[in-house]
Design a protein around this nucleic acid. Sequence first.
DNA 1: GTCTATACACAGATAGAC
DNA 2: GTCTATCTGTGTATAGAC
Lengths: 213, 213
Amino acid sequence: MSSASPTLATPPVKRSFREQMHQAREDAIVAAVNRLLAEKGFEAMTVDEVAAEVGIAKASLYKHFPSKEDLAAAAMVKVMQRAQSFLDGLQARPGLTPLQRLREVARWTMEVQLAGEMPSLPSENSSLRAALAASKPYVDGLMDVSDRLGGWIVEAQADGSLNTSLPPIAVLYTLYARACDPVLGFLKASGQYGTEQIIEMVLSTCFDGLRQR
Amino acid sequence: MSSASPTLATPPVKRSFREQMHQAREDAIVAAVNRLLAEKGFEAMTVDEVAAEVGIAKASLYKHFPSKEDLAAAAMVKVMQRAQSFLDGLQARPGLTPLQRLREVARWTMEVQLAGEMPSLPSENSSLRAALAASKPYVDGLMDVSDRLGGWIVEAQADGSLNTSLPPIAVLYTLYARACDPVLGFLKASGQYGTEQIIEMVLSTCFDGLRQR
DNA sequence: GTCTATACACAGATAGAC
DNA sequence: GTCTATCTGTGTATAGAC
């Protein structure tokens, strides 16, 4: 968004390079936070671990992000952006039915979780909750995603492919919950199934239910 | 299990009374731990909070339980025992089909969770995990519950009421996961539905699936 | 067994040199 | 902006009187 100051003698190229380095460093930080957040959750993750994984001093982290909460919030925003990008890609495929889109979204969240990149959600009274609620990019992203999914949900109910007796918000929350469903980890830990099999099974239980059809 | 020593002059009644007091105190402790475990999880729960809620000094807690992990493990064992008692009650009702039994189990776990009494499961690398794996009562209880549910699952698949393309273990894990499904909390927080409505909706998504039947 | 007081460890955050 | 060194609070656990 910001351009190099024209009054300075330093060439814009150099400033851009430094900004690129800065951005790359922050990306590395956010990626490490994301991974640790998925692995152990916000409370159990320590800033020392983040610093160690990135390979910089802890004090340097605090030059980039003012607190542990902001660190985690940045990772959550990043995940939300990835989700938005995925929805963009889905919307660009006109051949899909609304139900197919919802199914693809669920599949994507499960893939992200099995890749160890889906942060587990903070408990109700966590300090992270306040930070997320105060983060405009996060809240805006969440609302955007919810709106788009909500649109597909009502469309799928209108065309008769989705259970019409469920309120759309219940469907929406059910899809969100699949992103952190521990069933994936349980089945993975059992060692009997590959990631693709696991995802197919959980997708089946989610959309088709446990009862025989 | 233990009886008063016959060589002592103190009447057995008194010893029994003190044991009752002791047991009542421990029950109060476990109940508080259970509630806090459900509310904020193992990492965020502090022993100070437990002591404050029970109304005794922190050091007294450590006379009853040697560590925070043992404290939490005791609460988990208690929950497992409650589950076993519930299964006992279900088995005593011969009129129920296997599918109905499974549905009642899912309903019970959701009721417990909405009552704020279902501890959230520890993350993969938590110190609580090791304590639970080392707790014979817990592991035994978990295996007993799994065996009984597993029996009903294969019965329900045999009588054609449960999806036969799913491995029984996937069904089992799916039921376990419903016990800590965040959807319940989401819907509760939305303020639009009562607990009974919420449970019916989640039961529907679990057994009937999101797709229209 | 219950208490007060305290030891010990560690996590989040900062100071200040470079 | 990065580092080393440090401050500060807090959480688990224990000592020791009663």
